[in-house]
């Protein structure tokens, strides 16, 4: 009995230990750096505890980096832009992913495994390479433009790359499987007798979708949206490769601060603000959805 409980604790402790070591500790370090100031040297920031101007050992935390982020309109704009891109691409993922997930969930059982495999198939190729491949497809003399010109549909190449369109496309393409999988899991659980019951009570199939299927798949929609929206906000590779120099997203700004400007404290403050701004609304949303779903 006692041993069993200890064993259970040990099993639970492993993932928590992992999270503590590789998520909470690094995050604490980032949080610490965000209160420091840049310095020349290695590491490129001032220590948090050290001699102050009077030579006394004291806490040297400063909120200057957060103030800078608040004052400089660039950061806010980049952040809002990221939210806009992420929200737009999330909606695209949902609109494409829902019918796909629904189709797979309603396919004959023998087919479902294969269809799901096809959804996961792109993961066998590196994410970076797949995003690079889009450059070849979208660029001025890329495959799509050449094909359209050859077909005589257009005279001049369409501006497909280095703009917002390319970013939306890249985000939607890359994150679609993360939307499909939770939606599929939810839709597959849906009892088909509920749809028969709806039909039996006078509800044609088209309306039954809105009355029964959609409300019952809301948890899957919420899970899928969260799963794609959060990483999209911080996305760096896609805006960098497909968005061109004019696309402003917070992930890219963060990268620039960190690697180009070597301003670790500002980059850290950005990372912390981003996390707070994304996590708090999500936590509230989750609580709200969770409350509505008490069974």
């Amino acid at each position: 009995m006692r041993e069993g409980r200890a064993g259970r604790r040990a099993v639970i402790a492993i993932p928590y230990l992992w999270l503590l070591l590789f998520f909470m500790v690094p995050f604490a370090i980032v949080l610490k750096i965000s209160f420091a100031e840049t310095a020349l040297g290695i590491p490129p920031f001032t220590p948090l505890i050290g001699p102050d101007d009077d030579g006394k050992t004291s806490l040297l935390a400063s909120l200057a980096n957060y103030r800078l982020i608040g004052d400089d309109f660039l950061y806010l704009r980049a952040y809002l832009n990221s939210l806009k891109f992420a929200a737009g691409a999330t909606v695209c993922c949902l609109l494409i992913g829902y019918p796909l997930a629904y189709g797979i969930a309603r396919a004959p059982r023998a087919w479902r495994g294969l269809l799901l495999m096809l959804v996961i198939l792109p993961f066998w190729t590196s994410y970076l390479i797949r995003v690079y491949a889009w450059i070849g497809l979208l660029k001025g003399n890329g495959i799509i433009n050449n094909l359209l010109i050859w077909a005589g549909l257009i005279g001049d190449p369409l501006p497909l790359l280095n703009n917002a369109f390319a970013v939306y496309l890249g985000l939607t393409y890359s994150y679609l499987p993360y939307m499909i999988l939770p939606l599929y899991a939810q839709l597959e659980k849906l009892d088909p007798t509920l749809l028969e019951a709806a039909a039996d009570l006078g509800c044609p199939p088209s309306r039954a979708f809105w009355n029964v299927t959609l409300p019952l798949s809301l948890p899957g929609i919420a899970a899928g949206c969260l799963l794609v929206f959060i990483p999209m906000v911080g996305e760096f590779v896609i805006p960098d490769l497909l968005g061109g120099p004019d696309t402003l997203m917070i992930g890219k700004v963060l990268w620039d601060e960190f690697f180009t400007n070597r301003d670790w404290p500002v980059a850290s403050a950005l990372a912390v603000s981003m996390l707070v701004l994304v996590v708090i609304p999500m936590a509230l949303l989750r609580k709200h959805l969770g409350g509505g779903e008490a069974r």
Partner: peptide
């Protein structure tokens, strides 16, 4: 089925889990 003057009570009951008793019955 949705136009037949027939209603069925299912073996599994098939109640809509997201609706209250009243809105299930009123469906």
């Amino acid at each position: 089925p949705y136009l037949r003057p027939v209603n069925m009570m299912f073996q599994s009951y098939a109640l809509f889990p997201h609706m209250t008793v009243a809105s299930n019955v009123g469906f």
